[in-house]
Amino acid sequence: MTLAMWLAIFATLYGLGMWLLLPRRIAAGRAAGAVLMTAAVAILGTRLVPPGALTTNILFYALAAVTVVSAVCAMTFRSPVYSAIFFAVSVLATAGLFLVNGAQFLGVAMVVVYAGAIVVMFLFVLMLAQPEGLAFYDRLAFEPLLCSVSSGVLVFLLTITLLTPGTLPSVAPLAEAGADGRAADGLPGVEAEAHVAAIGARLFSEHLISVQVVGVLLFVALVAAAAIASQSRRSPPPRTAEGGTA
């Protein structure tokens, strides 16, 4: 079978599985959806080229599978608490993928900022705002069939574009960089021994203005969040969907 046929099978299984897994009026078929989705991920895994030595391959395949499967779980579980926890698992696996790909600093930053801060904030808001039990809007979804079909088409086009030989450049500049792995301008490259020192040298020389802009942005966001949160305290009485006061 050709690559296109395999990928078409993958995209079909993915779309079907996504449709079965998403919240719908009829709750039946979720186990079948899980089986189809697992099969789809496995088929895609067999189409990927193993990137390197045995350890790297095992690490990559395991982490990629955990990332994708927990992402699907985060989007399809009814309870938003489970969604937040599966999102944290997906972020942790992504941090592992970053470590495999020579981005140690970013791996650690993902764990600290995403899994450590943002997910905890999600859970706080959930505890504050979520009514008890599963709400009806968690058991319904907007247009699950249309979205699954279009997502299946999207992943088919993406994977066939990326996996067809010849689309991507065939020689990596990293492979030509020489023994010391220096970048084109002489500064240490991505695979340098002192990774954080190299990243800091770049960050505070070439990208200094971006760092300052991001600092201002963080400060503005802090002020905005405080302003929005304090505004709601003196809000008018809540209104129902029909327009009357509750």
Binding site: L48, P51, F60, V68, P80, F142, S151
Partner: peptide
């Protein structure tokens, strides 16, 4: 194999994007 590594990572990134897109369009919470 740097090209295979790039390919695989781009596939994973694209899948994450597609899955997130489905979640954003369908979920109501």
């Amino acid at each position: 194999n740097e090209v295979a590594l790039l390919q695989n990572y781009l596939v994973v990134g694209g899948l994450l994007f597609a899955i997130g897109l489905v979640g954003f369009m369908t979920r109501r919470n």
